[in-house]
Every structure is written in C-alpha cells, then in structure tokens.
Simulated scan of single mutants.
Amino acid sequence: MLSKEELLEKIREINSRIDEVQRQIDETTSEINNKRTLLEEIRKELAEVRSHIEGARGRLQKTRELISSLVERKSQIINQIRSLRSELLNMNITMQKYREKLVIYRNLLSTINEYVGGKTLEKDKLKRIIEQLEYFFETSPTNPEWERQFIKYISEIEKELNLADSMEKIKAHIAELKSQIDEFKSKREAIRSEIARLVQDLNTVKQELAQLKASRQEVYKELAKLKERREELKKRREEIKSEILQLALKRKELREKRRALQEELEKYNVLLKALELAERNKARARAREERVESLKERAEVLYNRLLNGERLTHDEIKILIEAGYLPEE
C-alpha cells in the first residue's frame, strides 16, 4: 500500500509524463499541419506544372502542324522547281536543235551567196526579165543556134530565180528560227526567274522549318523539364503523404499513451481519494475517541461531585447522561 506522499509523487510524475506526451502530441499535430500545408502547396504546383505541360503539348501540336504544312509546301516547291528545270532542259535541247538548224541554213545561204558571187538576186526583177525574154523568144524569128543560146540564157536566169527563191525561203526559215529562239529565250528567262523566285521561297520555307524545328526542340526540352518536375513533385507528394501517415500513427500512439497515463492517473487519484477518505475517517474516529475519553474524564469528575451532594447544571447532567453515568430521561 502506497503512502499519500508516494501517491502524490506518482500523480506528479504521471502529470509530468502526460504534459510531455501532450507536448509531443501538439508538436506532432503542428508538424502534421505543416506537412499538410506543404502537401497542398505541392498539389497546387503539380496542377500548375500539369497545366504548363498541356500548354506545351498544345504548342508542340501546333508546331508539328506548321512543320507538316511547310514540309508539304517545300515538297511542292521542289516539284515545281524540278518540273521547271526539266522544262528548261527540254527548251535548251530544242533551242540547241534550232541553233544547229540555223547554222545549217546560214551555211547554205552563205554557199548560195558565194555561188552567185555575192550579188543581190532580185526575185521580182528576175521574173520580169524571164517574162520579157519568153515574150521576145515567142515573137522573134526562128534561129536554132540563137534559140539554144536564148534557152540557155533563160535557164540561167531561171536558175538564179530558183536560187533567189531558195534564198528567200532560207532567210524566212532563218528569221523563223531566230524568232523561235528569241521566244524560247524569253520563256527561258521567265522560267529562270520563276525558278529563282521558287528557290527564294524554298530558302524561306527552309528557314521557317529550321526555326520551327528549333522551337519544337525547345518545347521538347521544356516538356522534359516539366515532366521531370512533375515526377519530382509526385514523388515528394507521396513522401509527404507517407510522412503524414507516419506522424498520424505516432500521434495515435501518443494519444493511446496519454489515455493510458490518464487511466493510470485516475487510478492513483482514486487511491489518493480513498486514502484521504480513510485518513479523514480515522481522524474523525480518533477525534471521537478523544472526545469520548475527555467526556468520560469530565463525567467522572462531575459524577464524583454529584455523589458528594453538589448540585449540577443542566449541561453537566447531559454530560453524565451522554457518558452513561445517568439514565436518559
């Protein structure tokens, strides 16, 4: 059986332990609240990161669409350039053929000029001469020798007329070839200008593609960083949730410990109250015994006085009755 001092010491010790446990509970609760605040901040940041990821993905999709459009445009330009270059090649081949024909006609014209001695053959004049000679031949007297010479002369003039006609046709061919060559040159220049314009457009498209690809690469890097940050936040979130769970378990254990201490404290308080009650009862009994003893001693004195014939007061008689020396009335 513990004494009152031992019980009080136990109660003080348990109260101190309860205070310490309560302090630990408060600290743990505060830490849990701080962790929850941090968890909420991480969740907000995680939501922001996810929003940024969606935005980056949207920009990436738009960039991909632009790249696809430019790649298609680039392919179209390249096909146009190839088609124009093919047309230009065919045109150059045709022009080369025309030039070769032109050289042939010029050589032929030069040969005819050399043949006629470089003189100018006037076709209309030659026709009139032939007509006049034929008329003169028909109206002149017949002379075989003269006829042969005359026919020979007419034949030579007709030959010159044929040569003049041939030269005229050759010149016409030369003029036509030169015209066609000039036309091809004009078309060729137009094609070259168009090719130059397309090449410039192609270079512009290539530059835009390079910029878009660089931009796409930057978005890839941004996405990689955002995803890395997202994983870090998710990992940190799970760590904090685990820490909160551990702290909650710790607080639960502390509360159970506090409850056990409170139960133990209640037990010692009950024991203390019982001890104090027993002490009070013992004190009352002792006081009652002391009172009875004192009463007996006084009653004995009063009884002796009564036996000696002394007159007692009402209160003194009551003392004798209470002490049992006199019967109750």
Results as ranks from 00 to 15, higher is better:
9 E>C: 00
53 I>C: 06
113 N>R: 01
41 E>C: 01
254 L>K: 00
184 F>K: 05
153 Y>M: 01
156 E>G: 03
181 I>L: 01
318 K>R: 13
32 I>D: 01
279 E>C: 05
25 I>L: 04
91 M>P: 00
277 L>H: 07
47 A>K: 13
100 E>H: 11
314 H>P: 03
269 N>T: 08
149 Q>M: 14
193 S>V: 08
26 D>G: 13
227 K>E: 13
241 K>F: 13
143 N>Y: 06
115 Y>H: 03
91 M>V: 04
68 S>N: 07
222 E>N: 08
116 V>S: 04
42 I>Y: 15
303 Y>F: 14
168 E>T: 11
120 T>N: 03
220 Y>M: 06
116 V>Q: 00
8 L>C: 10
86 S>D: 11
173 H>Q: 10
91 M>Q: 09
195 I>D: 00
103 V>K: 06
45 E>F: 12
19 D>K: 13
233 L>K: 02
281 N>P: 01
143 N>H: 12
285 A>H: 10
49 V>Q: 00
102 L>C: 04
86 S>Y: 09
71 V>R: 13
159 K>F: 12
77 I>S: 04
111 T>D: 04
155 S>I: 10
295 L>I: 09
36 R>Q: 00
2 L>W: 03
217 Q>N: 05
258 R>N: 09
208 E>Q: 10
192 R>A: 14
309 G>P: 13
214 A>L: 14
234 K>S: 01
97 K>V: 03
39 L>N: 09
318 K>A: 11
207 Q>I: 15
193 S>D: 09
3 S>E: 04
84 L>D: 03
326 L>N: 02
72 E>Q: 04
245 L>I: 03
291 R>G: 08
231 E>K: 03
114 E>T: 14
242 S>A: 07
199 V>D: 14
288 R>V: 00
113 N>D: 07
18 I>Y: 05
309 G>Q: 08
318 K>C: 05
321 I>T: 01
260 A>N: 09
69 S>E: 15
291 R>A: 12
126 L>M: 00
223 L>Q: 08
311 R>V: 15
9 E>L: 01
315 D>G: 04
233 L>S: 02
179 S>V: 06
118 G>E: 00
229 R>D: 11
286 R>D: 02
220 Y>T: 01
205 V>W: 09
147 E>S: 07
35 K>G: 01
167 M>T: 06
142 T>F: 08
327 P>K: 14
327 P>T: 05
313 T>R: 07
52 H>F: 06
233 L>Q: 06
268 Y>F: 15
138 E>T: 14
104 I>W: 00
209 L>V: 02
245 L>W: 05
276 E>R: 12
32 I>A: 04
241 K>G: 06
